[in-house]
């Protein structure tokens, strides 16, 4: 009986948030909508990271690689191939899957520290390659591209319109979140959690753990890549510094603050910290890193399982 009520509560909770996100833009100005779009995109990116850290137990410290592949996927297919929006998205997703599969095939053989170091090194190599291949990537000056319109049958919508863009980003984020959630409810997703908990035992029980890790790695990279693609569409611009490790660090920070292994925590962490960054930077640009550092220390000391972990504990205590 108790578990039934718990599920119902969760459903109501998510419905309220979802409805709020649908209705909210009607009451907000241009700038606030812009910030929520960024919060959603960064949340999706952190979700990709949560798949590999929170559910598979591997610390991928090179998430910016996938995000960068996503942004360049959209940019280059629009600029060089003159693809329409749907084709550009398809090419980007395909590129992310292939990149993550090959990368994952090599890197998931390593465990713990070796895995972390490998991912840092790959992300740094990609950064330097992208910085130096100016003719393709535009280097640190980057590439600007015309954002293609969104065509749905006979309707053509302009993605530069903030309201269209808002609902487009919201739809994709919710769709990916739902699919990832369903994936981790499936027997295969549960098996990935078994690898996180005890890889040796999972193998002894008959799981092909190398395959499980590769699938999870690919899913993680693809989700981060989709976020990158959305980001490119959002600002209509891409540059090589997107591959810098700083962005990988942000994925770790957002997910840890929100709560790793909870899916929704990534959106929560990214949302809160992106909003805080915006708020504080408009007041004093230098003070933001200090405040984020403090938030991180407080969260790790008081709520090691992040905001979602703390909420769950509160809920348990109150019932």
């Amino acid at each position: 009986m108790a578990s039934f009520y718990k599920k119902r509560n969760n459903l109501i909770f998510f419905s309220i948030i979802f409805l709020a996100l649908i209705i909210l833009p009607n009451f907000l100005g241009y700038y606030q909508r812009y910030i929520i779009i960024e919060m959603l995109i960064w949340g999706l990116y952190a979700l990709g990271f949560d798949i590999i850290l929170g559910y598979t137990g591997l610390l991928n410290f090179g998430m910016s690689s996938f995000f960068g592949i996503g942004t360049y996927g959209i940019t280059l297919s629009v600029l060089r191939l003159h693809a329409n929006l749907w084709l550009a998205i398809a090419i980007t997703i395909l590129a992310c899957i292939i990149f993550s599969l090959v990368y994952g095939f090599l890197v998931t053989r390593f465990c713990s520290h070796y895995f972390v170091v490998f991912t840092i090194v790959v992300s740094m190599i990609l950064f330097f390659v992208a910085m130096n291949l100016r003719s393709i990537t535009g280097g640190d000056e980057g590439l600007t591209f015309p954002v293609p319109p969104l065509t749905l049958g006979f309707v053509t919508l302009n993605l530069k319109n903030i309201t269209v863009k808002y609902y487009f980003v919201l739809l994709i984020c919710m769709l990916v979140l739902y699919l990832v959630w369903r994936f981790f409810e499936s027997p295969y997703g549960k098996a990935i959690v078994a690898v996180r908990e005890n890889e040796d035992r999972a193998r002894a029980l008959g799981y092909n753990t190398a395959q499980l890790k590769l699938v999870s790695f690919t899913l993680s990279g693809t989700v981060a890549g989709i976020a990158g693609g959305l980001y490119a569409l959002h600002i209509g611009f891409t540059s090589a510094p997107i591959f810098f490790w700083l962005l990988s660090g942000k994925a770790v920070m957002w997910t840890v603050v929100g709560g790793a292994g909870t899916l929704i925590g990534s959106f929560l962490g990214a949302g809160i910290l992106v909003y805080a960054e915006d708020l504080i930077s408009s007041w004093n640009a230098d003070i933001y890193p200090i405040i984020v550092g403090l938030i991180l220390i407080i969260v790790i000391m008081l709520a090691p399982k992040g905001i979602m972990g703390a909420l769950k504990r509160l809920k348990k205590a109150s019932f």
Partner: peptide, 29 residues
């Protein structure tokens, strides 16, 4: 064992692969 999971989840992880039902993305476990 899988220390952070429940008893029932531990056994289910063994059973779903033992009976060849683990490669399934569309149904909930």
């Amino acid at each position: 064992l899988f220390q952070n999971l429940t008893v029932q989840e531990n056994i289910r992880l063994a059973v779903q692969v033992g009976y060849g039902k683990h490669i399934n993305f569309f149904k909930k476990a």
